[in-house]
Structure formats: C-alpha cells, structure tokens
C-alpha cells in the first residue's frame, strides 16, 4: 500500500500520517492510562486527530462540530463527573471476577480487527447510493450542502433529534436529583430492612430543598425509588462490600 500513500500529495500524506498517529496514540492512551483524568485528556487527542481527518476529507462542518461538541462539551462533562465522584477512586485490579474476560476481549477484538481489515480489501457487499445528493457541489461549501440535506431530505429525523435531546435533558435532571425520603410519600414502602439507613434521614431534607419544582419531583419518584431499593438489595446481598 505504500506506493498508494506515496502517490498522494506530500501534504496530504503527511497530514494523514500525523493525524492517524495522534488518533491511535490517543486511543491507546484512553485504554491504558490508569487515571481516568488522563484517559479523558487522551480522548481529546483522539478527537482532534479524527477532526483533522474530517477536514482532510472535505467535511469541514463536521470537524468543527466534532471539536466543539466532543472536545468542548462531552469531554468536559466527563471530567466534571470524574471530579464529582472523586479522582482518587481506583480500579480494584486485584480481584478480577472473570479471569478469562481480559484475554477473551483481547482475542476477540483483534479478530474483529483482522476481519474488518480483510473486508476493507475485499469486495464490499454494500455500497448503494443514498438519495441525499452529492457531497461536493461546485460553488457551494460543505456547510451549505450538509445543511441543505439536513433541512430537506432529513428534515423529519432532524426534528426527531430535538425530541431526543429534550428527553435526554429531562432524563438527566431526573436521574441527578436526590431521592425523596421514604416517609414523605404514602405509596412508597415503609422502611423495614437495614437498607434504609441514616442516609435518607440525613439528606432527605436537603434533597427536597434542592428540588426545583413539585412536578419534577413527582416525575422522578419511581426511578429514585427503584435505585434506592436496588441499593438496599445489594447492600444486603453483596458480601464483598
């Protein structure tokens, strides 16, 4: 394949080689670094590399979105959560409940890689064109072309994504709020086991004070309840803790 790479223009080849190297290094870093903060930073590296490759392939708009949304928002969100839960939490590497898991994972992953590379050389079974139109239109930028496709052919899916995002926001808000105290609601079961310890008594008042509105509180009630119950079960049944 080397001759093909060399057949390309030098800047292109150089850009590809560097960006690919950055991506792979970043990916390996995500997987291999022990500290999750390092993993997150390595993920940014990969995302930048991929963004460069997007530019290289005339997808300037997606590259910008990749940097803004992924590197700017999602990874920051990851870092927030890492900080929130405590940076110093370590994986308990000593106790591996599934001894074969790691080697099986490695084997299967490499097998899948080999198969994909094999397929990359072969005759692809797919390849039918969609109806979205050409990617490169003379006189129009990539943003224009992509936007036109989004707002014409893909208008309905595009609108659906708005609903998806709203649901995600509501879901996140519901998940993030603290569960109410069991005593505050009639239809919740009365505390019987040791599962409902001092925790709910301790922060129940604060949790309610933080709730923004009554309707959200009622919306989220079942999830909080379920989680609390599952906690109770594991605390009772999980001897390793």
């Amino acid at each position: 394949m080397d001759h093909l790479l060399l057949a390309a223009t030098v800047p292109d080849a150089l850009t590809f080689a560097v960006a690919a190297a950055i991506s792979v290094v970043g990916a390996l870093g995500v997987v291999l670094s022990r500290n999750p903060v390092h993993s997150a930073l390595m993920l940014i590296l990969t995302l930048f590399g991929v963004a460069v490759l997007f530019v290289e392939q005339d997808a300037q708009f997606l590259a910008a979105v990749q940097v803004i949304v992924y590197a700017g928002a999602i990874v920051v969100l990851f870092l927030f959560v890492i900080m929130l839960l405590g940076v110093d939490r370590q994986e308990a590497l000593r106790s591996e409940p599934m001894p074969a898991q790691r080697w099986l994972a490695l084997g299967l992953g490499l097998l899948a890689l080999a198969e994909v590379i094999l397929l990359a050389k072969g005759h692809w079974p797919t390849g039918a064109h969609s109806v979205a139109g050409k990617a490169r239109v003379a006189g129009h930028s990539n943003t224009f072309v992509l936007g036109r496709a989004l707002f014409t052919t893909y208008l309905f899916p595009f609108e659906i994504t708005s609903a998806l995002l709203v649901i995600a926001v509501v879901g996140a808000a519901v998940l993030a709020r603290r569960p109410r105290r069991p005593e505050s609601s009639l239809d919740e079961p009365t505390p019987e086991g040791p599962a409902f310890g001092g925790e709910s008594l301790g922060d129940g008042g604060a949790g309610r004070a933080l709730e923004p509105g009554g309707e959200q509180a009622t919306d989220g009630e079942p999830i909080g309840e379920v989680l609390e119950e599952s906690e109770g079960v594991t605390v009772v049944g999980g001897p390793e803790e």
Partner: peptide
C-alpha cells in the same frame, strides 16, 4: 457477523 460478511465477500 463479520466472519459471515467476509465469507460472502470472498
């Protein structure tokens, strides 16, 4: 699945 696709492709 990939193995199946590969078998079809070749």
């Amino acid at each position: 699945l990939l193995a199946y696709l590969a078998s079809r492709a070749f």
